[in-house]
């Protein structure tokens, strides 16, 4: 199964990097959509079928956490997993992401392998050479 992904980041460079990395890392992607902030993302989510959102935390107009809050208000959008992409790695900040409903977070810098592992786990896809899906995520333990 291929997944439609929405990348939300105010940085043209990071949108490009994430798009390229997702395409080359081996994660099964369908359409890859882009938005420059939370407002654009909500519009795109209402107009397109999206399976997964990668959202930057620090954005003008509507940041990543506000985007999750808005998505949670909508019955359909609330079911779409959101991975928060961030430079901020404080435990307090990460806890806030998860408490707000982020499926996981990705701290920059990241490698293609890290992205593939996280996205496959979130979407219930088997890892290469391992058909079992592990429960939980070490990254989320404090």
């Amino acid at each position: 199964m291929a997944f439609n992904v929405l990348i939300v980041d105010d940085s043209l460079a990071m949108r490009s990097v994430l798009k390229k990395t997702i395409q080359m890392c081996g994660f099964k992607t369908g359409q890859i959509l882009e938005a420059a902030n939370g407002v654009e993302a909500l519009k795109s989510l209402k107009e397109n079928w999206v399976d997964l959102v990668l959202a930057d935390y620090n954005m003008p107009q509507m940041d990543g956490l506000q985007l999750i809050e808005e998505m949670k208000k909508d019955e359909l959008l609330s079911k779409i997993p959101v991975v928060m992409v961030t430079t901020e790695g404080s435990e307090k900040q990460v806890r806030a992401f998860l408490e707000k409903g982020a499926a996981d977070y990705l701290q920059k810098p990241f490698t293609p392998e890290q992205i593939k592992t996280k996205l496959n786990r979130i979407m219930g896809e088997p890892e290469d050479g391992d058909e079992s899906i592990e429960e939980g995520d070490d990254d989320l333990d404090f």
């Binding site: 043209l12 990097v17 404080s90 307090k92």
Partner: peptide
Amino acid sequence: ATLREMINMTAGKTFSLYDSQSVFKL
């Protein structure tokens, strides 16, 4: 766009390494 992203990533990573308990607003 690249330089903006470079400084954003570098600062964020620096502060998370320096003090992972605190929140830095960038």
